[in-house]
Every structure is written in C-alpha cells, then in structure tokens.
C-alpha cells in the first residue's frame, strides 16, 4: 500500500485580502489554503453558511459572489478581493426578511435548519438565473425561455441537499416567490 503524501511540513503562506461581505469592507489575513467558507465562519463570525460535506456536493455552504450562487467550500478566499460576497446574513434588509425567507417560514420549508442558509442563497441565485432566461437540464426547448414550474425548481436546486427531506415545502416556498 502506498503511503500518504507528506504535506505537513511546508510553511503556511498567508496573504492580506480585503473582502466585501454583505456590503461591508472586511480586511483579513488568510492562509492561501483557506476557503471562503472557513474565512466566513472562523474569521468573520458569519456562521450562517454551513459546512456539510466540504467537497461541493451538499450545497450547505452556498453563498453569492457578485450575485451568483457558488460553493464557498470550493472557493479559495485569496481569489476573492474586489468580489462582492453575500451570505444568508445579508439577505434581509434590517428586520425585513427577504421574500424567500418569509416564504420558507410560511410553507414550513425546513426542519433542522442546517441546510436552510444554503437553500436560501441558492434559491436567490437560481431565481436570478431564471429571470435571465438561463436553460436547465429539464428545459424542453433549450433555445427558448424557461418557465419556472416544479420540475425546473427541483432540477435547478439539485445542488442543495436536505437530509430532513423538506424538499416538498422548499419547492413550494420557491414557487411562491418565483412563479
């Protein structure tokens, strides 16, 4: 059997970057290896984005970068200066919830809540993609304009897992806002 590669003894490399997070400028010194997810949670006390799989497969870490949904667990923080980052903490306007947040409450779209910040950020990004006319894998005519039905919502949200199985109500919440 081959041995584990020796990766433990090189010196860490740190870099100063200035992030724009939820409209605030946040200077931070990061290890080049650090992901946006770890920077948000460990350095900036923004613990809304969750670490589920840390491999880009579960979607719990989803945030918006320049308005687009991405996996913060696969995004190196050092790549992000000048980029505009929005986390679940930045969706509401003061005490006024984002329409998707209200819809998730109204339709009972979560149980344990662990995946919810990722679901919300993903849904915000996804509705913008539909508004821009982007096709999906279930869009019948890829050259035409997609219509947001339940199949489209399910396909477009497939990057966000919910182990409680709240999918039915998540689809309902998104339909309420997006349709």
């Amino acid at each position: 059997m081959s041995e584990l590669k020796d990766t433990g003894f090189d010196d860490p490399v740190t870099v100063d970057v200035t992030l724009s997070v939820n409209g605030e400028s946040r200077p931070v010194t990061v290890d080049t290896r650090e992901t946006l997810l770890d920077t948000l949670r460990e350095h900036l006390a923004l613990t809304g984005a969750k670490k589920g799989c840390d491999h880009g497969q579960c979607g719990a870490c989803t945030v918006l970068v320049d308005g687009r949904r991405v996996k913060s667990c696969l995004t190196l923080t050092v790549t992000l200066d000048d980029r505009r980052i929005t986390t679940v903490e930045g969706l509401a306007a003061g005490d006024t919830l984002h329409p998707l947040q209200s819809a998730f409450i109204e339709t009972d779209a979560f149980q344990c809540g662990y995946c919810t910040p990722g679901q919300l950020c993903s849904a915000v990004g996804m509705l913008a993609e539909v508004a821009d006319g982007w096709p999906s894998a279930v869009t019948a005519d890829v050259a035409g304009r997609p219509v947001l039905d339940d199949d489209e919502i399910r396909e477009r949200m497939s990057g966000n897992l919910c182990r409680c199985g709240a999918y039915v109500n998540i689809v309902a919440a998104i339909r309420q806002v997006g349709a």
């Binding site: 949904r69 696969l74 995004t75 990004g125 096709p135 894998a137």
Partner: peptide, 22 residues
C-alpha cells in the same frame, strides 16, 4: 443554444447550478 443545442444541453446536464457558475 440556437446553433448547438447539444452543447448547451450537455453543460446544463453537468454538476449543479453553483458549480456551473464557478
């Protein structure tokens, strides 16, 4: 999408929305 639907279809058949954005 108009000239090569199979290319657009293949791209949206891959990964997830978040990963395709990256």
């Amino acid at each position: 999408r108009r000239r090569h639907p199979m290319l657009a279809q293949a791209v949206v058949a891959g990964a997830s929305g978040q990963i395709r954005n990256m």
